[in-house]
Nucleic acid binder design. Structure first.
Lengths: 339, 339
DNA sequence: CTGAAAGCGCTTACAG
DNA sequence: CTGAAAGCGCTTACAG
């Protein structure tokens, strides 16, 4: 009974399945009397259309997949909110998938999502799939990547300018007169492209003022969690040459972890150590001290990504892949400006 | 070309579609030579099985939906992580949907999810759908609800004991000698059932000691966000009779918002005001002060919910709906214990 | 306004 | 080991 089909409804109502389909979908004109009979049968049988069958026939599902590494990293959940809102304006429902950065899962999802008809399109924020991996695919899937196009890639990319953002963040610290600025969150390996771009911005800002970078102040972290930031900060404080006077963390979570360590050790923020984060998550706005951060325009990222996906869904001529840039700005708060 | 079908592969390889299906799914024995031909054709055509068609035929999708009000509320994203992990052990992929608490969306999702074949089952954390609403459905869907069964309901429920948890939290504050304990997060309306249970626990703890509750200290908040907690705390501080000496917030986000307000106003935590939250999200563990909170066993919630869903998916005899309880405990940290 | 029928792309008894 | 064929539950020209 949980599985009444169109045919069952038709039989019960004494009409053809075509007619049932018409009333269920609100198509065409159906006589009042027939409609009533059909609706009665639908109710009695508890009929609900099988979406798999409908989608198979229609050739679309109305579903967009958003694939992110970690949902409990606020940047991603906040981005998800923006994507969901944007997709709805196009009539799409978004369904979210978390990969935990496992390459197999990321691969599986772009396969099953983009080209296996389950989803009409996918927006992927790759973590363990390097840009090079992605460049190997043929690009015919409705897939938009979040993050700069580093290697040549056959897909659309939506990103903020990480080098420029990191440059701005570092410059802000330099403007404050800080001279020993640590950079926390480098990822000097294949899939750490975004982190590497931020490191580049950090270096460029120093170079622009003729300042040398103390390489020991550039610290790598395995992931971008609070615990990584706390641990990195602890290591920085334990250095024989004393603590840095500022820290640029590659995301807000790292910064929040670092702040916890600083406060626990009795250091003052920003007097002793100024801290800048990246992402502008809500937690940073309610932390004490509130967190200075780079704020990427998440709504813009969502808008560009969804637009690009839906644009590829029609039958129009396929456009060549592009790289789209969303704006960002520096949000100055207590962790660098005092209260 | 993006849409090569089984038939195309079969033609190219010069075999029947049955054979192609066999090699694609790794079924049966296929001669080395045939397999090679088929694999070559698959690669050349870039063939990937249409999952919609496969699922329609197989009668299952391997997809579980987790429907939550807000993904950027850390409790839900942390819960999502647990559900995803648990579901994987059963071979299920979970796909997440955010309703923003809109009743229409919650309704749509349980319709399309549970009984429209897109998902094999759904785990729903209802916000705007009251228990009464849910009780009206027929219960034949593979649907598990998160939250206590308040009204009679035909579905399985998985929850923690909110009354007991709130009782424990309040008792902890009373044990500290606090006498004016505010409760922040009441929702005295139809869909605020969980909040109301927490208020009941708060009252019971007072009653158990023969203490009267100052009704003006029970404050409602529209939602459970940091901003709501900050605003509620500000209002509490502005009272003519002075601030409370403790606050029990119905989730950690409210507590974090309240703490921000307290710190901004120059009050000391816990000396002037002790704060207890609910949920045990990561942010509370890195906040300064770290947050005392009720820690629901999210892994247990996930385990029970997924088990229950998968249990309903087989062909076995259907069991009557049950109410399952996950454990919780009080996690004492700096916001009540000092540092 | 409504029927009979083809077909979306698969899987899988049934034969051989 | 492999084919020919039915059917999962829909939608939708094509007729009438």
């Amino acid at each position: 009974m949980a599985t009444a089909r169109l045919r069952d409804v038709a039989e019960r109502a004494g009409v053809s399945i075509r007619t049932v389909s018409n009333v269920v979908n609100g198509y065409a004109q159906v006589s009042e009397e027939t409609r009533r009979r059909v609706e009665k049968a639908v109710a009695e049988l508890g009929y609900r259309p099988n979406l798999l069958a409908r989608n198979l026939k229609r050739g679309r599902t109305g579903l967009l997949a958003l694939v992110v590494p970690e949902l409990d990293v606020p940047y991603f959940s906040e981005l998800a909110r923006a994507v969901i809102a944007e997709a709805r304006t196009y009539g799409y429902t978004v369904v979210i998938d978390q990969t935990d950065g496992e390459p197999d899962r990321e691969r599986e999802l772009i396969m099953r999502g983009a080209s296996a008809a389950l989803f009409d399109g996918v927006i992927l924020s790759p973590l363990s799939l390097s840009q090079a991996d992605l460049a190997r695919r043929d690009g015919s899937d409705p897939l938009v990547l979040l993050g700069e196009r580093i290697a040549e890639s056959p897909y659309d990319h939506v990103a903020i300018d990480n080098v420029a953002a990191a440059y701005t963040a570092t410059e802000h610290l330099l403007d404050l007169g800080r001279t020993r600025i640590a950079a926390v969150g480098d990822q000097p390996y294949d899939t750490g492209e975004t982190a590497q771009l931020r490191t580049r911005g950090y270096r460029d800002a120093h170079a622009a003022r003729g300042l040398a970078v103390d390489e020991s102040l550039v610290v790598a972290t395995p992931r971008f969690h609070r615990s990584d930031g706390a641990a990195a900060m602890a290591a920085l404080l334990d250095r024989p040459d004393g603590p840095p006077d500022a820290v640029f963390c590659y995301n807000d979570l790292l910064a929040l972890g670092a702040i916890r360590t600083l406060l626990t050790r009795g250091l003052r923020i920003p007097e002793d150590v100024a801290v800048v984060g990246f992402d502008d998550i809500e937690a940073g706005r309610y932390n004490t001290p509130t967190l200075t951060t780079i704020s990427p325009d998440k709504a813009a990222i969502a808008r560009l990504a969804v637009q690009r996906i839906t644009g590829r869904l029609g039958d129009g001529p396929q456009q060549p892949p592009v790289e789209l840039w969303a704006p960002h700005r520096l949000e100055i708060r207590e962790s660098t400006a005092g209260s």
